[in-house]
């Protein structure tokens, strides 16, 4: 569980958080929502320890948190297998991978449906496959909590669904995923827990039914939404597009 307690942060004039509170539960796919510039990525950086908060406390009980940024550069001329095994070289001085490490890698590639792509050069992979490769690398680095910054942002619909399915699948393997997305409807469809950053620099969080209310969404995005609930499904649409303009 990640606990965010009384978090405050601002960059000069720009205030991002003012005594914000939230909890991110274990073994659930948590979705982070919010407009641009409200500090979603910054929140991830604080949780993963890349950035220090001005005041307040962020604590967690994971072995390792892995932050996957939105834009990353890939080294050329490597196969997918070589790319994902890079983390094995981090901690020791060995020249070759051990048998266990190779088996472990193959297990994870299998879990992410990448086995048949493992000998393909990474510059020839699609963005969906690259994202899965990054997730594989994260898992091989022994992370049990993944923070994904818009992992599906440049994927087509099929790949988006595939990737989120995989993230959901990881929950069964004891891995907690937190992701940023801008797609409210798909978030509502696959998310297990929700966090919204609003314009008052607070964090709104909750389960699906309590989070998706017209009041909350207005508070987060500043525009009116229609929410249609039928059984478990939630369909969200903008009430009046003229408001935005």
């Amino acid at each position: 569980m990640i606990k965010i307690d009384n978090l405050s942060l601002s960059f000069g004039e720009k205030v991002l958080f003012v005594s914000a509170q939230a909890e991110i539960p274990d073994n659930k796919l948590t979705v982070v929502l919010g407009s641009n510039g409200t500090g979603k990525t910054t929140l991830f950086k604080i949780i993963s320890g890349n950035l220090k908060a001005e005041s307040g406390k962020v604590s967690h009980d994971f072995k390792k948190i892995f932050f996957l940024p939105q834009n990353i550069k890939y080294p050329d001329g490597l196969t997918l297998f070589e790319y994902v095994t890079s983390f094995f070289y981090a901690t020791s001085f060995k020249w070759f991978l051990s048998k266990e490490e190779i088996t472990e890698t193959e297990k994870i590639l299998n879990l992410l449906d990448l086995t048949d792509r493992k000998n393909i050069l990474i510059e020839k992979l699609s963005s969906g496959e690259l994202q899965k490769a990054n997730i594989a690398a994260a898992l091989l680095s022994k992370a049990d909590c993944l923070l994904l910054d818009e992992p599906t942002s440049n994927m087509d619909l099929t790949n988006q669904i595939k990737t989120t399915e995989i993230l959901k699948k990881l929950q069964n393997h004891g891995i907690t995923c937190v992701m940023i997305t801008h797609d409210l409807n798909s978030a509502a469809a696959f998310g297990g827990y929700f966090i919204g950053l609003n314009k008052e620099h607070k964090i709104i969080s909750g389960q699906k039914s309590e989070f998706f209310t017209e009041e909350n969404l207005k508070n987060i995005f500043g525009i009116d939404f229609n929410i249609n609930k039928s059984n478990e499904d939630i369909i969200i649409s903008v009430k009046n597009t003229n408001d935005i303009l």
Binding site: P75, Y89, A90, F93, K94, W95, A137, S141
Partner: peptide, 20 residues
């Protein structure tokens, strides 16, 4: 030679390797 395999880790994007 001791540090060469380490470069295989450092080749990753700095965003990914920051914590390690």
């Amino acid at each position: 030679g001791l540090f060469v395999p380490k470069l295989n880790f450092l080749r990753l994007d700095t965003g990914l390797t920051h914590n390690e």
